[in-house]
């Protein structure tokens, strides 16, 4: 599939997702739900690679995106003093999007998928709390948590529809993008979501940099040599993965 068509699909999906969760008060105070376009892109990877994609898969992909919107809404609740109206509604926005994903799959009769995805959300919540736990987690454990938080629900979706062969590229790409964004934010003195809460990651920024390079190298090879992915799609993925690096280089002059 070419880039223009991919962009059109992403736009249509975003519209469909926004349509699912239209709620005037939430829109007014919390804005539209967070929809991460990179994540949506990797959720739809089989579709973009020309796989058969039916209505139930379309709905399931929307449901998975809603899960991430729900989790993202709760990540926006401040750790302390969430007393403003916007913050109170941010709490409810997350719950509302969660209810909507469940409802969407329920009316479609996708009970098995509901079971799998809800188990996944529980696991994601467990891994998010690792960044607040007194218990010390090792560097590798934290990277594993980041990967799970970033991609678990999509992995479950791809497994469910037997698109196993896309999982590696999806998981590693989303991890790479997340780590690059984290590192860039950290270097700019911002408060990146994971690094700011983990002294373990802060103390190992150099190792993190090496980890990023390692993932990038393996992933690039995997994509370039893939027999599965269409050539056009390969270029688009590679471009996405390089985007953060290019942005960093531009910042550094």
């Amino acid at each position: 599939m070419n880039e223009a068509l991919i962009k059109q699909h992403i736009k249509q999906y975003k519209e469909a997702i926004l349509h699912q969760v239209q709620q005037s008060t939430l829109l007014k105070y919390t804005g539209a739900p967070v929809i991460d376009e990179e994540r949506l892109f990797f959720t739809l990877l089989p579709l973009f690679n020309g796989e058969e994609w039916e209505e139930s898969q379309r709905k399931s992909a929307i449901a998975v995106t809603l899960i991430f919107s729900a989790l993202a809404a709760h990540d926006l609740v401040k750790e302390l003093n969430a007393t403003s109206k916007d913050q109170q509604l941010q709490v409810l926005a997350g719950d509302y999007y969660s209810g909507k994903y469940y409802h969407l799959l329920a009316i479609d009769g996708q009970l098995d998928l509901i079971q799998i995805l809800s188990e996944g959300v529980a696991t994601i919540s467990e891994h998010k709390t690792r960044f607040y736990d007194r218990q010390i987690y090792g560097f590798d454990q934290l990277i594993q948590s980041i990967q799970l938080i970033e991609s678990q629900s999509i992995e479950q979706l791809l497994e469910y529809y037997s698109f196993h062969e896309y999982i590696f590229v999806m998981k590693e790409s989303l991890l790479l993008i997340a780590l690059k964004k984290e590192l860039a934010a950290y270097e700019q003195g911002e408060q990146p979501f994971y690094i700011s809460k983990s002294s373990q990651l802060q103390a190992n920024i150099n190792i993190l940099q090496l980890e990023i390079e390692k993932i990038e190298s393996i992933l690039m090879d995997e994509i370039k040599n893939s027999e599965l992915l269409e050539e056009q799609l390969k270029s688009i993925i590679l471009e996405k993965l390089m985007k953060c690096t290019l942005e960093k280089q531009l910042r550094e002059g």
């Binding site: 709760h74 997350g94 509901i114 079971q115 809800s118 188990e119 998010k128 709390t129």
Partner: peptide, 20 residues
């Protein structure tokens, strides 16, 4: 608050998983 959010999310998710 953030831990409360994740605790609630964990419970909601378990609630849905249970009833499946």
């Amino acid at each position: 608050n953030r831990v409360a959010m994740y605790t609630g999310d964990f419970l909601f998710a378990n609630a849905i998983e249970y009833i499946t």
